[in-house]
Design a protein around this nucleic acid. Structure first.
Lengths: 183, 183
DNA sequence: GATACATATGTAGGTATTGACATAGGAGGG
DNA sequence: CCCTCCTATGTCAATACCTACATATGTATC
């Protein structure tokens, strides 16, 4: 089982979805900290089905192409639940912008400043996006987000991480900009 | 040119290093937001040398095996400087712990709480590590960390991100723990 | 003397992911 | 009627990365 497989199971545990739907949800910034292309999703769904973790049925559609609607099985639900608390491998953090910051002393000052200003904008936009989702959760599911057995709590927890992550990232970008702009 | 290639050039722009040294620096948590194994580093160094971005000379050592000391060329310095401000591809954020949080409603409450407590400890340790490096920079290079043409400024900027990242991550883990512990 | 460990450099095989190619039906606009 | 876009499912080749294998020298410990 790959991590992508668990990501798909985690989405299918909430509602039945087609491969196309899953690909939409795993597009940034909707996919909370995991994403994949349809070229990886379709084969992974076939593997999950071969292992008996999901099943599918074809839905005939008149106004658009037919689709395969995937549903999680009881076994799939068990597998993803066990995976959540299984030993976590050391996370592989890779951030190209931080790496670039580490090399910024070799770059042109003005161009570097422009780049970090743009990145600050991008992350501020992303932050606004997450904060909107957070507000939506609090308005629409103010009860369920306190119930840890509810998928809404889990979604809210992921969004909380998105807010914190992007807030810190935006602040750091702005700090770099002020340093590059100083004097 | 791969991102790893730029990472190696960024390190070699500071001082000549062997492949082994580079592998040590790119081990977590020393490698600030980029890491690689020696099995990837050695071939990459050969590619960089073939492109004329680095050169190497063999250093004879008596107390340990001989080593190849790599030095960046003028062209290599130019290439990495240009790369820093080149268009940045959309970052591919993948965080398995956040994905697990998104699925935590399917898991055992006690086990989940224990896992997030452990993760909080891990990230708190990492935060302490980054804060120690930050303090070292401020004590040893309090002048250079304000000079954007200095590698110390660049290193300080990367560490600042490490501090912010791990601080936020630790706080989020603790928030999840309190939610899982409530009632 | 044997064993383990740090230094040092490499290769080989497998997996996860991406980007491009491929097909197809229906909707909407010009 | 053509072109574009959204929906929908798939394959293929290339790449980035990891795990494991492979070798060699010197030091420290049992």
């Amino acid at each position: 089982m790959t991590t992508l497989g668990f990501a798909l199971l985690g989405l299918l545990a909430r509602e039945p979805l087609s491969g196309y739907d899953l690909a939409q949800q795993l597009k940034k910034p909707v996919g909370f900290f995991w994403h994949a292309r349809h070229s990886q999703i379709y084969p992974e769904l076939a593997l999950l089905e071969a292992e008996g973790l999901v099943t599918h049925r074809v839905i005939d559609q008149t106004d658009r192409p037919d689709k395969k609607l995937y549903e999680i099985t009881g076994q799939g639900r068990q597998v993803v639940g066990d995976w959540v608390t299984s030993p976590l491998p050391v996370p592989a953090v890779r951030d190209e912008l931080v790496l670039r910051a580490y090399c910024v002393w070799l770059a042109d000052r003005g161009r570097a400043r422009a780049m970090f200003e743009e990145q600050a904008r991008i992350h501020a936009d992303s932050l606004a996006h997450y904060e909107a989702i957070k507000a939506w959760f609090e308005a629409e599911h103010h009860e369920q987000i306190r119930d840890i057995t509810s998928p809404h709590f889990a979604g809210y927890a992921a969004v909380m991480r998105g807010v914190g992550y992007e807030r810190e990232y935006t602040e750091w970008c702005r700090w770099v900009v002020t340093m590059l702009a100083a004097e």
